[in-house]
Design a protein around this nucleic acid. Structure first.
Length: 602
RNA sequence: GGGCGUGUGGCUUAGUCUGGAUAGAGCACCGGGUUCCUAACCCGGCGGCCGGGGGUUCGAAUCCCCCCACGCCCGCCA
């Protein structure tokens, strides 16, 4: 039963397992019902074990069902196995102990999976679900200077989540909320509004001996920021100037150079993020909510809220004691006595706008913003808003070499994204030159850049968001094992085979009977799971799971590669080439979803 | 003090939400593999009372309670 590759009927399922799972789950639910166990197909699906073992691809434990009807689980398993109808594409259920094991018919799975990949191409792994509009807000760092790695974790999680949600078919808008009116932005404008000669000595000391006007703006203009931050703590008159500047920004009267400065710094920061593939659909300027009057309306609504109070000095606040906030934070200040507002108040205005445009709103926040998230929720409740953002909270990146603690520019404990990438690039270049002496210099440079980006991005992406990451240079710069370059290497190997296959561009007709070795079947199985993983990651927002899956896929490909000749194969050649093409597509799609760049050669 | 999070082999970690059949990986270490499609790879080995104690359950890394350790947050900054 030879099965042709591309040019099929065009009706391949997005997920090769969808029909198999549906049939199995319904049959199991029926079989259970016939024996007095009521279970919906959904409940059965929830108990299905996808981990796979020597017994099969899917397992269903019967302990619970057996207990419900007071029977022996093994016996029930045997009985149901005997009573199940034959299901297309699946082996007959096999009882092992209290488990019912089912395997996909390998030839059918291969045919379905390869057809789906060839028909869908770059969209394999995408789901076509056409979900509701989603807004993913992430990064939103103050425009005060270059990104350190800790801050970039936000962007890497947010950008990957954006890609994955988009792959489910939902229209996704990514937003960077730019605070151009806060105290932090005011500090940058404050110092650069003065001629350098008039800067306080301790701030001027951080400038380089020779100013380089071509240096990227976030570095050049952001350089004095940590020193300014320190200086203001001990110089109240300077702090008062910044406070006055902050008021001017809020009232819509920024100094002449303010917007230019913020924009330049931000552009530099965005250029830095772009090095690891992070980009935004929209920049949302905080000042917009002030000038539009929306912040004023929020202040008015909060003044009329159930727990509105006025502080002794005239500040407007919300007594949030009922919201479970820590004692010291129970009073949420909405507006100072002089009428200026605070971050949380303005954030309410921003979120109201988001709710108006998007049915689903996701905020990616560092764990230090956890309390802010709860405050925001409290304020939304106070104005009678029932919609909520979904918060994706991630933990810090710490710097053990600097005595521990979270990465922070102000505390001088930061590893900058650019420095890390630069070092990664140097090392990548050395690796390339050591093995590809024929590669042209500009390709070497390009490939080194790409490898560096993938190493850094993957290194941060691979860890679960609620795990604190201790930054170590050697780990972040690894190109082996569980790393981005490993994924790219697998892709490059696949590309290399196809390139050398007589210049044959495919598509290769495949015969599933010629893809029967264990490494081939394992690779196909892994490829078939990509859509399901995308669906799960979109649901859980656990983007690190996709990173783990991509590594398994690459591992499976490498095992196949090492064990199975392709170009020199005999009658299996065309089928194996088809599998290589499919693996390359699957790997490439996984790389795209992770925000990593596939490489034809490296 | 209160809150949030974490604790799995020497190191980094998956699995924990939704309890299941011998807890998966990577690094390091030891031993193999390249006349052949890229060895940034593959194969094998070593190494785990899943922080501690109690409980629930046919079954606990996973659920509940207590304790310990570590990180972070608790500002009229953002």
């Amino acid at each position: 039963m030879a099965t042709r590759g591309a040019d099929g009927s065009g009706q391949s399922p997005a997920d090769p397992w969808a029909a198999l799972e549906g049939d199995l789950v319904r049959a199991l639910a029926d079989a259970l019902a016939a024996r007095g166990v009521s279970a919906t197909p959904e409940q059965v699906a929830l108990q299905l074990d996808w981990s796979g073992s020597e017994h099969g691809d899917l397992a269903f434990p019967l302990h619970r069902a057996a207990k419900a009807v007071g029977r022996d689980p093994s016996e029930l398993a045997r009985e149901i196995a005997g009573a199940m109808p034959a299901l297309a594409g699946l082996s007959p259920p096999r009882p092992v102990g209290a488990f019912l094991n089912v395997a996909a018919e390998p030839r059918d799975l291969a045919a379905t999976t390869l057809r789906s990949i060839f028909e869908r191409g770059p969209r394999y792994g995408h789901l076509d679900l056409a979900g509701a509009r989603v807004c993913v807000e992430h990064t939103s760092a103050n425009p005060t200077g270059p990104f350190h790695v800790g801050r970039v974790r936000n962007g890497i999680i947010g950008d990957t989540l954006t890609r994955v949600l988009r792959a489910t078919g939902a229209p996704v808008t990514s937003q960077y909320y730019v605070d151009d009116v806060g105290r932090q932005a005011a500090m940058v404008t404050w110092i650069w509004s003065k001629p350098v000669a008039e800067w306080p000595e301790e701030i001027r000391a951080v400038l380089p001996a020779v100013d380089d006007p071509d240096e990227r703006a976030d570095r050049r203009l952001g350089r004095p920021y940590p020193a300014v931050s320190q200086y203001l703590k001990t110089h109240p008159e300077a702090a008062a100037e910044v406070q006055a500047l902050s008021r001017a920004l809020e009232s819509g009267h920024p100094p002449a150079r303010h917007h230019e400065l913020v924009t330049k710094v931000l552009e530099g920061m965005l250029a830095s993020l772009a090095r690891v593939g992070i980009r935004f659909d929209e920049l949302v300027w905080e000042s917009r909510f002030l000038s539009s009057g929306e912040v004023d309306r929020v202040v008015e609504r909060l003044a009329a809220a159930p727990h509105a109070v006025t502080e002794p000095n005239g500040a407007a606040a919300i007594d949030a004691g009922d919201y479970g906030l820590p004692k010291e934070s129970a009073r949420v200040i909405v507006a100072r006595a002089d009428g200026t507002t605070l971050y949380a108040t303005r954030d309410v205005a921003y979120h109201l706008e988001k709710f108006g445009r998007f049915p689903r709103v996701i905020d990616v926040l560092g764990q230090d913003h956890h309390l802010h998230a709860r405050t925001l929720e409290a304020l939304l409740t106070e104005i009678g808003e029932t919609r909520r953002p979904e918060f994706v909270i991630y933990q810090d990146i710490t710097v053990p070499d600097s005595g521990g603690g979270r990465m922070s520019t102000r505390h001088g404990k930061a590893v900058y994204l650019d420095d890390l990438l630069d070092e990664a690039e140097i090392r990548a270049r050395a690796e390339i030159l050591a093995r590809r002496e024929d590669m042209a210099p500009d390709e070497v440079a390009q490939v080194a850049r790409t490898i560096a980006a993938s190493a850094v991005r993957y290194h941060i992406l691979r860890v679960a968001p609620d795990k604190t990451v201790a930054f170590r240079w050697e780990d972040a710069l690894s190109f082996e094992g569980r790393s981005g370059p490993f994924l790219q290497y697998s892709y490059a190997r696949a590309s290399s085979i196809l390139r050398k296959a007589d210049g044959d561009a495919g598509p290769w007709p495949f015969d599933v009977d010629r893809l029967a070795t264990p490494p081939e079947r394992a690779l196909i199985k892994r490829l078939s799971l990509l859509p399901g993983v995308v669906a799960r990651v979109a649901r859980t927002t656990h983007v690190h799971a996709l990173a783990g899956f991509a590594h398994q896929l690459a591992e499976e490909f490498n095992r196949f590669y090492e064990s199975t000749p392709v170009i020199k194969a005999g009658e299996e050649r065309a089928s194996r080439l088809a599998l290589v093409a499919a693996a390359r597509q699957g790997l490439g799609n996984a790389l795209d979803l992770l925000g990593l760049s596939p490489l034809e050669r490296m």
